[in-house]
Design a protein around this nucleic acid. Sequence first.
DNA 1: CTGAAAGCGCTTACAG
DNA 2: CTGAAAGCGCTTACAG
Lengths: 339, 339
Amino acid sequence: MNRLNLEDIAKKSGVSRSTVSRVVNNHPNVSKKVRDRVLKVIDQTGYQPHAAARALVSNKSMVCGLILPRTVDSFFKDPYFPALIQSIAKSCGENDYTLSLFLIGSEDNEDVIFNRVTRRGFLDGVLVQSGNIADRIIDKIIKIGMPLVVLGRPFNTDGVNFIDINNVEAVESAISYLVKTGHKRIATITGPLVTTVGIDRKQGYLQGLMKNDLPVDNHLIYEGDFLEKSGYEGGLELIKHKPDAIFVASDRMALGVIRAMNERGLSVPDDVSIIGFDDFPVQPPSVPFLTTIHQPLLEFGNKAMEILVDAIENGGELHQAYLPTEFVVRTSTKVRILE
Amino acid sequence: MNRLNLEDIAKKSGVSRSTVSRVVNNHPNVSKKVRDRVLKVIDQTGYQPHAAARALVSNKSMVCGLILPRTVDSFFKDPYFPALIQSIAKSCGENDYTLSLFLIGSEDNEDVIFNRVTRRGFLDGVLVQSGNIADRIIDKIIKIGMPLVVLGRPFNTDGVNFIDINNVEAVESAISYLVKTGHKRIATITGPLVTTVGIDRKQGYLQGLMKNDLPVDNHLIYEGDFLEKSGYEGGLELIKHKPDAIFVASDRMALGVIRAMNERGLSVPDDVSIIGFDDFPVQPPSVPFLTTIHQPLLEFGNKAMEILVDAIENGGELHQAYLPTEFVVRTSTKVRILE
DNA sequence: CTGAAAGCGCTTACAG
DNA sequence: CTGAAAGCGCTTACAG
């Protein structure tokens, strides 16, 4: 591996270490003549500054962490995570940061990860996926004052940067759409209610019903876990109560619902309309095609990194942002009666 | 954030910096009495060594990189990647390394990533997913002498550590199984033939036919890209030539084949037996359940890190390992005639 | 077993 | 615009 240091480049260029450093860092106070000479040597030798030395003296590692709590089980079953990782990795790179990944597997693991993440001189800041209510890592990171952006609304939002999508509003609109297109008995399969995203989408469902003067019927509410299987099970359960539409809190579960309907000889959308949530381009195409709520993933990653970089570089004021989603009508819903 | 350094701990403990360093690094030459005293101070203050300072002087960052080439498109459509990441992240942590993730999106991007990855003092070693034949990053990393393990056989195996699964052998056995259970016209949907994994699984198919004295018919070979859609398209194409079995180089594509068969009113396995490859627990359950070749993902991650750590810490001799897979018979294949 | 000192490779006031 | 020098926080021979 490359063994040259600043001193070597300085000698080869006939200038001092300081000057080479200025050239490397694009400092303005260097004459064009000297700059060009040094640049040439750097180019010829393939010199690269030593990352650790730089980090030590400048107190910046240019690395940020992405922490995914308690997700080992669902991590590779849920397309959200690869999609999120891709989005964050891209924005990270575009901001000249490198991304380190931390998957929290178990509760014990949380302390190990916390200690690793908060090592001095290691990470400039972290993004933490909002997890379930039992995760304490967010509070601990806030406590030590590390630059942080939470992905998804955390349980305690006091003084913490976060970015989320407009879950409540999006679902409320979807319910209103169902009502407007003639649905009367609207059921839901929620996400896990130990997560804010699960809670918020359910809240949107409830608000949607209330806004449209529909009663809440607990038989029409089933708690799932975002994965296909729980959608399938929820579908089997809910059809006992004859809904004419189901809002399902993830596309993955919506696919499970459709599978359940098929098995029971019910038609989607003729018997039951289905609305999903996510619209990641990962699902195998289902027939019918899912009406769903589109998450703006790239924007999500970009915005998250923007906030984090601001927090790292400028101290940054508090950012709590909600990104808009988009309602996408496909063939898993049907217009029954127009108002 | 925590601002104490070694000197501070030394003062608080009434010893020298050297001694504190020895305690922190578990060096044997410290009396129990002193060690306990220092440990107590460290515990009370929550002192953590500065990662960059340590990396600078010890020339070890305890970070390793995972590079996924040219996969941005398929990255979050192919369950292989999250599964791989999870496996590697786990092994990384168990070896006290932190994982940095690099997704190569485009050809230009490759140079940027290469420069970032090879910065001195940044990564102790890298794992690179074997990509397609156009990727030059593996050769470049070898050239600069950075500790490296390629995940999946690379095109040029000279003097490069890699780990793979026994693709050729596994597929050959699967084909033999099909022959033994009475199949005569065995088709295949391959992976992309610009990748070694695509090539190897096709090679296994060809060897399987030859070993069983079956002719090779090019109409029975379709090149896919591992994703569902290409399986669907390949299925539609292949059934024109009336195969009684199809070996499909990924489960994802196998699902597409089943979708195609269903659409054409053909039964799996009554009309056509299907064998997939991967057996990651990510697929939505399909009916019939896929007969497939199981990849030992956790072992894969463990073995990869074991080789990398050896390369980093001991210079390590050349490791080129093939892990065994497991053939799992489910209901997408049917015994037609026993020999 | 312990400490003083050198040095890892850089950046950044400071002086000119 | 340029250079000499100090210092970031560690580890590790070296001497005792």
